[in-house]
Amino acid sequence: MSTTPEPAGFGGRRLSPADVRDVRFGRSSVFRPGYDDVEVDRFLERVGEELSRLHAEKAELRDRVHALQARLDDDGPRPEAPSAQAVGILAAAQQTADQYVAEAEAISRVMTAEAREHYEEQVREAREKVGAMIQAAHEAASRIAAAQGTAAVAAQSGTVDTRTEEELQEQVRYLQAFGQACRAQLRAYLEALLADVEREWGAASPQAVPVAPRPQAEPLRAGRASADPAPAAVTAAPDPAASGAAPDGEGSGAAEPRTVEAAAVLLSDESLRGQEAGRRQ
């Protein structure tokens, strides 16, 4: 890929040393002899040698240019190989970073597992307590019903009966809603814990973890029901009443004192009301 123009030789071809060596001059006329053959030949010899030398030199230079160009192209802007020290420093830095990430992940794992365990335990306890309370309420209901049943043999009033039952129904609903409220609170508590865990983790965004909406409790009438017979209603299967019939302030005020007292074991009545109010919005 020569770019320098070559002097045009015979018929425009590049003049090669052979061209010069093989050239033959004709004689112009008998009376005027041409150049001295010997001198011409000697000169041509020298021209040939000079051209050979130049060609060789040019080829060598061209090769060197190519080699240098190739090195530039291949290696690009890469500097010399990094020193062992540099490699060592970067490797150590990377290792340190890896350890931090691994530790953060381990801490997060342990904390999340503990938080979840804690949460499940609390939910289980709360559920057991609520179950026991509802059970007690039902027993009380049947006792009162029985007592009033005997009383009703003599008396003629059926209204007392139904009113008591209504009250008890209301109480049951209250307790169910109370159970929901307990779970909502525990959930909020756990999520706060998880938010802490998140903050521990390197890139975690510090914003508060949003409290997910409670799944609407409605029975999934999906498919063939349990192979077991339906469990007793006492276990408080989530009821549509949860959203519709949540007790208001009056309701809880009207509840049997015993229940309120029991409720206070888990939560203050005030916080319960706050929870209910929040959920209704």
Partner: peptide, 13 residues
């Protein structure tokens, strides 16, 4: 997943 970087980000962030 406890300690899982991607899953916790997908769920919470």
């Amino acid at each position: 997943q406890p300690g899982g970087p991607v899953s916790t980000a997908l769920v919470r962030q």
